[in-house]
Design a protein around this nucleic acid. Structure first.
Length: 427
RNA sequence: GUCCCCAUCAUCUAGCGGCCUAGGAUACCGGGUUUUCAUCCCGGCGGCAGGGGUUCAAAUCCCCUUGGGGACGCCA
């Protein structure tokens, strides 16, 4: 039975590197129908905060990485003490300056068998004895992680590359404690554009910031999964595919640079694939925040119109924020055109005629096809081409120079808004 | 500095000795479609860090160099 854990320390914001580690553990657990444990490593009393814990929970919940068991490391202190005392009694640890030190064998070497990195050999002479219990009687990471993983029957330790060097010390501890070794798998780190370890300096790096920027969970997850993991030439995966295909064998050994352009593209692809109802639900808070609509307006709008608008506009949006902004087209009483609309007399006549014809349409059948037929018949009657008024009408209806097809967007904006905007233009 | 890891287009990657005059994706540049833009489709640009081996054959295996990253706490 597979048991894995994700063990973040609540000492700051929850960044995407941690999210990737959490994701890989979660995918591994779900792939093998195992158990995914969330263990908050808060043994650093100085720096651990409840706000950080909240952020971890909120980030993982948003990403959809659900856990089966949850622990807080400081609750496990009795277990740590028991294990430490065992080492003291065995003579494998000793006290010095009020702290308890683990005795590292002077000779020999320890080989870590890593699923990703292969066999890595460390000579014992390279590290000296290390503290397992501080003089304030709290326990140190390298020690508690072993005790906890062992007690929790963790079968696979999947974590960042930066822990590889700690691993031989932990292996020694497992042996001293006479506990079975888990299988280790160390993930390559994620780098910033400057090839340094990803951090705040590289701009947005916390999961919640990406949520705020309008990325959808499926998009971020897909992008993160492709950083260090691959499945042939495939690029796009939904959650279930990831679970089905994920294995440790496909993990890369080299660090990957976090590439924002590709994140945006991946996100757009997922926005294109989401069902309209779901996508509409995701944009709602952004639309309200961007003041494209009030919550009341949003909830009151005809669903078909909303879905049509979302569908038309999502191909032009990389994020939910982009989408939310242009969605004002469906709600705003007045739209400020991004450039002045200049109408010649003939155009004015045509637009007025179109507005009148649209006003007479059956409100229940203001579909793209119906709008198309109405507009085209008006144009035909006046021996005109759509091209003559297209730019002006688009600016008038959407406030923008570019956008979806006129008939569709007018249908999405609805009869009242469309007619109103056209009449305001020719008045 | 010491130890450890890594090394294919700008970036993410496929490749696990012959299928590779190295494939896909992003970005970029053209073209097509369209009422405009986007989407979409087609095409282009662009890489095995360098040097030694091993082998009939190396992007793939070994060594060295170089480059990048990580760890060297009574942090996690």
């Amino acid at each position: 039975m597979v048991r894995v854990r994700f063990a973040p320390s609540p000492t700051g914001y929850f960044h995407v590197g941690s999210a990737r580690t959490a994701l890989f553990n979660w995918l591994f657990a779900r792939h093998y129908h195992g158990t995914f444990i969330l263990r908050i490593e808060d043994t650093d009393r100085e720096r651990s905060t409840d706000e950080s814990i909240d952020q971890i929970i909120e980030s993982m919940t948003w990403l959809g990485l659900d856990w089966d068991e949850r622990y807080r490391q400081t609750d496990l202190t009795p277990d740590h003490l028991q294990a430490a005392e065992q080492l003291m009694e065995n003579g494998q640890a000793y006290e010095l300056d009020g702290a308890w030190w683990f005795k590292v064998p002077a000779d020999g070497e320890t080989v870590v068998h890593d699923s990703v990195m292969g066999d890595v050999t460390f000579r014992h002479e390279e590290f000296k004895d290390f503290v397992i219990r501080r003089s304030d009687e709290t326990f140190v990471y390298n020690f508690v992680v072993v005790v906890d993983d062992s007690n929790m029957k963790v079968t696979h330790v999947i974590r960042g590359d930066d822990h590889l060097i700690n691993t031989p010390k932990q292996v020694l501890l497992y042996q001293a404690l006479e506990r079975p070794l888990p299988q280790f798998a160390h993930l390559p780190l994620i780098l910033g554009e400057d090839r340094a370890r990803l951090s705040k300096r590289h701009g947005a790096s916390s999961v919640l910031e990406y949520r705020q920027m309008g990325f959808v969970p499926e998009g971020l997850i897909n992008f993160l999964a492709r950083l260090g993991w691959s499945h042939g030439d495939d690029e796009l995966f939904d959650r279930d595919e990831l679970i089905r295909l994920f294995t440790l064998e496909e993990i890369n050994r080299s660090a990957a640079v976090f590439n924002h352009e590709k994140l945006y593209w991946t996100n757009q692809q997922h926005m294109k694939r989401l069902d309209l109802e779901g996508l509409a639900g995701l944009v709602r808070p952004f639309a309200v925040a961007e003041q494209s609509a009030t919550a009341e307006q949003w909830d009151a709008i005809d669903r078909d119109r909303l879905h049509l608008g979302v569908d038309l506009l999502r191909d032009r949006s990389k994020t939910l924020v982009d989408l939310a902004k242009v969605l004002e087209i469906l709600f705003a009483a007045t739209l400020e055109p991004e450039e002045p609309i200049v109408l010649e007399d003939r155009q004015r006549v045509l637009v007025a005629a179109v507005a009148d014809a649209l006003a007479e349409a059956n409100a229940c059948e203001f579909t793209p096809d119906a709008v198309h037929d109405i507009v085209q018949s008006v144009l035909a009657a006046n021996d005109a081409k759509l091209k003559e008024i297209a730019k002006a009408v688009r600016l008038c209806i959407t406030g923008r120079k570019v956008g979806p097809g006129l008939f569709e967007i007018m249908s999405a904006a609805g009869q009242d808004l469309s007619v109103g905007r056209l009449r305001a233009l020719v008045r």
